[in-house]
Design a protein around this nucleic acid. Structure first.
Lengths: 339, 339
DNA sequence: CTGTTAGCGCCTTCAT
DNA sequence: ATGAAGGCGCTAACAG
């Protein structure tokens, strides 16, 4: 009554274990008819290969570790989903390691822990390699970084600087005060996680505003939570001289700006223009103008890069940069009423 | 240059592999001196056992699957952390499976997927077993449920009904309208995840209010997000006849009630009394009266229960119930100013 | 193309 | 108490 093994399948299909193994690893040299026969046997036995045995025998377990800051932020869910789908195409599974904080990260870092037991590692947003003395992960496994740039490993990322620039150009099409609200971990000495994602957006925006000969009235930083964005929004609305334009470094911070504007009877696109970043699935619903980033493409590409490494590719690190683009919606459009 | 094996250790220590294996599984019958010798060899070789090999040979991988709705909600982070710590005491690791939604859950459910490759399963909040025709997980592994009650498996949970009751009693100590705002998945036919956590809180509260001969003016349901709580809060404050008391089924919903009250100049503990549920780490900061639940204890207990099963315990399912208790803070106290 | 066989790293008897 | 040997489920040659 225990799980069926490759032996059972071989017997049931009337072939040798070697052949079964071949179809498992879809080796080309197997006659279609026998392949079918074996597949049928696996089906009827409800057989699935034991990844531990595969790992120990063949040196690979068909799992890859995905290390990310957290799960539940929509951005990461989307990324994760696209990565898993792509890995699935080659029958790979993802083992998820949410770091969440310094303590957990440190546990995961030690070279004998779970993340290193997989065939490869995908890191999201944070390039953990920089935490090591030599700037490399303490492993021979292929590593790829998503949503971050590095010269040492394959990576896929968004040109956040450019996104900030575009936001600035659009901002400067209208008169009035300009505000910037964003998350920033760049200057937090205690932040073990660091990325340039937000810093780049900010710098791009600053550069763009200054190129247009304008200037930013005020800049605020806060965490990526609705209530934090709301608190800052109130400050801004309390003292601003309308019209104003606010660039929120993330959609989640743009959301309270819309809500609070409505609460106060401010007219969106006229008194207040709001620009987000991310184009979250709900951004359309609330009419938030924002910079779209191709999250799914980025994740899928990263997974592909890793799969290539896992099938033996040995070239130098490859970098893929995606350009975000502006999607104009009611939060910044005159005369189109917000639903 | 590859990783050292048990062979290397045995050789270096001048013993047989069997003995090394014994110290690995701390078997009693090993002389202290040889044990020390072997430990030293392992140390100098920087040896760590290959979990896949252990799994395949010994039938256990020293990992347990933790299946939870999501990560990033503080409740789950705390639970997860306590579980991992406890498992770690016995050298077990946790593999994390955030379900996040129907699609991912369904993938995980199939009996050949990753969650079933571990030695045991801890399920949080949602008793996935009910999704199967026979009401049991399709596996022989021990299962324990945290934050939910079941008769089939070991479980640890909070008496949410009692919590609701206590909240109601406290609520009814003051006059005025009574409101209830909570999350509820009970009546959502599409919700694949279901739990009685919130339903119990609600029922307990309703019962308590009615016992006191009072009645609930209005009940609202929404998702567990700040902005949703805020929207409802505004509705309530717009139409309420103060003083009022609001019971929020979760701290995260109580938070906007405090913020909005301040915004409107309502006096907490006088015009508006707010009671949350959870006692999140930040509840003290914002002065939120709430029902404390012993999250860490619950997680640690669950992990222990599983570890016992993993070491061979075979008794009938055990249930551990924790009683939440009220912590009174500024959001419901007269004359103590909220900071 | 396919059956056979030797390991992969470790645990578990069975002797000693 | 400890060494030797068989086997866990699978992959990877090696013969046919």
């Amino acid at each position: 009554m225990s799980k069926p093994t490759i032996q059972d399948v071989a017997q049931k299909a009337g072939v040798g274990v070697g052949t079964v193994s071949r179809v498992l690893n879809n080796h080309p040299s197997v006659r279609d008819s026998t392949r079918a026969k074996i597949l049928k046997a696996m089906e009827s036995l409800n057989y699935t290969p034991n990844p531990h045995a595969r790992r120990i025998a063949g040196g690979r377990s068909y799992t890859v570790s995905v290390m990310l800051p957290m799960v539940a932020a929509e951005f990461y869910i989307r990324l994760l989903t696209s990565i898993e789908e792509t890995l699935g195409e080659q029958r790979y599974d993802a083992a998820i390691f949410p770091m969440l904080g310094r303590e957990r990260l440190e546990r995961y870092l030690e070279s004998h822990t779970m993340p290193y037991q997989a065939d490869g590692i995908i890191q999201i947003t944070y390039n953990l390699a920089v935490l090591f003395p030599d700037g490399r992960m303490p492993t021979e496994q292929p590593v790829v970084l998503v949503d971050g740039k590095t010269d040492l490993y394959d990576c896929t990322y968004v040109d956040n600087y450019h996104g900030g620039l575009v936001a600035a150009e659009y901002t400067c099409q209208a008169p009035g005060e300009i505000y910037l609200v964003s998350f920033d971990d760049e200057n937090d000495p205690d932040a073990i996680f660091k990325s340039l994602v937000f810093a780049d957006r900010i710098h791009g925006f600053q550069e763009g505003v200054s190129r247009a000969g304008r200037s930013i009235k005020d800049t605020y930083f806060c965490g990526l939570q609705y209530h934090e964005g709301l608190a800052i929004t109130k400050q801004i609305y309390d003292h601003a001289q309308f019209p104003i334009t606010i660039f929120a470094g993330a959609d989640i911070l743009g959301r309270p700006m819309i809500d609070e504007a409505k609460s106060r009877g401010l007219i969106l696109g006229q008194d207040v223009r709001i620009i987000g970043f991310d184009n979250q699935p709900w951004a359309a619903e609330i009419g938030l103008t924002t910079l779209h980033q191709p999250v799914e493409e980025m994740g899928a590409k990263a997974a592909h890069l890793l799969l290539e490494r896992l099938s033996g590719f040995e070239g130098p690190p490859r970098q893929f940069c995606y350009q975000p683009f502006l999607i104009e919606r009611a939060s910044s459009l005159k005369s189109i009423p917000v639903i």
